[in-house]
Design a protein around this nucleic acid. Structure first.
Lengths: 222, 222
DNA sequence: GAGTTCGGTGAACGAGTGTTCGCTGAATGC
DNA sequence: GCATTCAGCGAACACTCGTTCACCGAACTC
């Protein structure tokens, strides 16, 4: 309890989606959340493969044995964290594209949304950065799958965008992967930068995205 | 010894640079290499923060205490591995740009060189992927510093490239970072892909780099 | 109200850990 | 030849670790 710097401000405070009836269930969910939050906090300065069951239960205020009532593995817990980490991103990207279709505006808003997300959920993003190529295969695969879904979603959105509507599906997918990759890299760079570096990173990525957009406008003409 | 899948084909076989006179020195260097190679092998399936001193010395055929004759920390060993990992890349990028200046050709050759490098030194690249955002700060910083040097080098090369010679230094740096990031991501994707996926990844990245190049050709015109 | 379910506990298991210590013996400097 | 250096060793210290076990007691079912 003394080792946790952050009181784990339950990042998804909504108790609505699956409160499930029963005091029993609620208490179990609370313990589960405590484990997840404790792990997330510890993972800010550590790898998943360096994390220990005892360490997590200690931070969560459970006994070591209690862990196994919720997860078989730390890897299993890790996969859940991956899903939580990226769940919000999907609704965010849709929100960005919901407005106007001006590419320049889209770019600015995308960067703003990413910066805000990084500022709000740094722990989740740090975790993703660490485990995207980390030592636990199942977690790595979960991240890859989630990012692929993300690229797919963006490719679908590009299909209704004037500049890219006429492209082949493969080319749209290629462009979507380019954008996703740039944004992921940006998020990861932002998360371990201090305040002044962040402004520079945001400026750079805006320019880079504009350059990519410029390239895609001249694509078919080549 | 039984747990090492790879007999660690000393990636830098040159005994010339610093053989230093003396049997003593040579034996010490051999042990040091054994430690580095053993660690690199173990890190193919593990994080640096999950690695143990005893584990490394066991794989290297030393006693645990022997480790401390060479490194104070596993982190220190990790930093050395980072430097070795990226040392070759610098000479490679110069080799690519030494030839003709045709952008399309440069792109094709860059992708080829990366693919070849990944095929030849997968362990080093896997290690870089893991530790670029891993749990050990000193190693993370070493990777970041090395990649920054890399971007700087590329920016210098862009200064003598016809399309970008007239750009501002900041814009060239921006473009260099975009290229470096794309290539790093590609290398990391290649390293955990199987043979058929690799062809697809190479094709995609070629297209993406062409699109970026197209954008940079129209940049000043915007 | 009686009986069942089940999340959480504390103790215990064997195994593995980082690091330090004094020692050895071959390579060195003279 | 002799004294010195020092890479490597085995043993030991004092941990931490993952996982299992029987058990408790509050929440549930009926």
């Amino acid at each position: 309890m003394t080792s946790r710097p952050d009181p784990a401000p339950a990042p998804d405070p909504a108790p609505a989606p699956a409160p499930a009836a029963g005091v029993r269930q609620a208490q179990k969910q609370a313990s589960r959340r405590a484990l997840l939050d404790a792990a997330l906090g510890l993972l800010e300065q550590q790898n998943l493969s360096g994390l220990g069951v005892r360490e997590v239960t200690r931070a969560a205020g459970l006994s070591p044995a209690g862990f196994y009532r919720h997860f078989a593995d730390l890897a299993e817990l890790g996969v859940v964290l991956v899903e939580e980490s990226l769940a919000n991103l999907h609704v965010m990207v849709r929100a960005v594209f919901a407005g106007s279709g001006e590419p320049e505006l889209l770019i600015d808003r995308s960067v703003e949304v990413i910066a805000a997300h990084v500022a709000e959920h740094p722990a989740y993003l740090r975790f993703l950065a660490r485990e995207r190529h980390g030592g636990v295969k199942s977690v790595r695969d979960a991240v890859a799958a989630e990012l692929a879904r993300f690229a797919e979603e963006l490719a679908d959105l590009l299909a209704v965008q004037p500049d890219t509507a006429a492209w082949s599906a493969a080319d749209r997918r290629m462009l979507a992967e380019l954008y996703v990759d740039r944004m992921v890299s940006t998020a990861l760079a932002l998360v371990e930068a201090d305040a002044e570096e962040r402004a520079a990173i945001a400026r750079t990525v805006r320019t880079q995205l504009r350059l990519i957009n410029l390239g895609s406008r001249h694509w078919q003409a080549s």
